[in-house]
Computed example of a mutant assay.
Amino acid sequence: MLANFLTPAYLPFAIAFFIMIGIGLIEAVGLGLGHLDLSADVGVDGHEGVLDWLGLSGELPILIWLTSLLGCFTLTGVAIQQGVSTFFGAPLTWPLACLSALIGGGLLNVGAAHGLARIMPGYESSVISTDDLLRRRGTILEGVARRGSPARAKVVDQHGQAHIVMVEPHDDTTVIRAGERALLVRREGQLFFVLAEDNSLLRSI
């Protein structure tokens, strides 16, 4: 069997097998390369349904999905070549075997991917949108924030990660100095507008 695995008829499946092992090792050591959000920002109707069907739009990391696909492709290809050899005395040519294995392995991987997604722990991303910083308090780091003269401020998000943003007072007459805190209330592009901590509107918050 091992000798057959290195013949041209089986070589694509041998390559797929070794790639699968390599990707599996990457995931095993926890490099975190597999977590890609393929379903975000899908703008064309029907694409999300296709991704769902393939098992790609849930919590399954892309490299785990790819490892599963390579495994299904390898198993299906070897099974096809073994079956054809048994009945006809010789395996299929590698292009025909690859096409057959890709179709069969792809269908098999649909079920495998959905099964893996159910048993794997969910992946929680700490990536946030810029707008998620709104309604959070920040601290002016240096300089003085005035209308038309923004200053740098540090804001800590819900995951405990610090973000450095440029802020201006929401009110024309307000001045916010280094070390003072303010509430981010709106955003225009990359610039945030804030209410000073001592603003009367914030006394009850």
Rank of each mutant, 00 (worst) to 15 (best):
V167Y: 06
R177I: 00
T93N: 13
T93M: 09
G189F: 03
I128M: 07
G105T: 09
A90I: 04
P169L: 04
E188S: 13
R135V: 03
D172Q: 07
A101V: 00
C98Q: 07
E142G: 02
G160N: 10
L107P: 01
A112I: 13
L108P: 03
F192K: 03
S149E: 12
R118I: 03
M120V: 02
V167T: 05
G122F: 06
F192L: 04
E168H: 02
P95W: 12
V185I: 15
E168K: 07
H159S: 06
T93W: 02
R186L: 06
P121S: 11
L99A: 15
G104S: 10
G122K: 15
L141S: 07
C98R: 00
S129E: 14
I140H: 05
I128Y: 05
G160W: 08
P121N: 08
C98S: 15
A145H: 08
L108Q: 09
G89R: 10
L107T: 03
G89V: 07
S100T: 04
I103D: 02
G104T: 10
H159D: 03
P150A: 07
D172L: 08
G160T: 09
R118K: 15
T86I: 08
I140M: 02
Q158L: 13
T139Q: 12
S100Q: 07
I140N: 04
V175F: 00
T139V: 13
H159P: 01
A162K: 03
H163K: 03
P95C: 11
A151R: 05
T86K: 11
K154W: 00
H114K: 12
G115N: 12
P91C: 08
R136I: 02
T130A: 14
R137C: 04
Q158D: 12
G115Y: 11
Q158P: 01
W94Q: 13
T173P: 00
G122L: 10
G189S: 10
S149H: 13
L92Q: 04
S126H: 11
Y123L: 09
A112T: 07
R186E: 14
L134N: 06
F87R: 04
T173S: 12
V110K: 05
A151S: 11
G179R: 08
L191G: 10
G104Q: 11
A182T: 01
F88Y: 12
I103A: 15
R181Q: 12
T86G: 07
E142R: 14
L99F: 14
D172V: 05
S149D: 13
R181G: 11
R146S: 10
R135L: 09
N109M: 15
A101N: 07
L96Q: 12
A101R: 01
G189A: 06
L184D: 01
P121Q: 05
R118Y: 09
G115K: 11
R135Y: 12
H163S: 01
S126W: 00
A97P: 09
R136V: 01
S126L: 02
R137M: 09
I103F: 14
T173N: 12
L141Y: 08
I140S: 06
L108R: 02
F192R: 00
D171Q: 14
D157F: 05
P95H: 09
T174A: 15
G122C: 05
H170E: 15
G189C: 09
M166V: 00
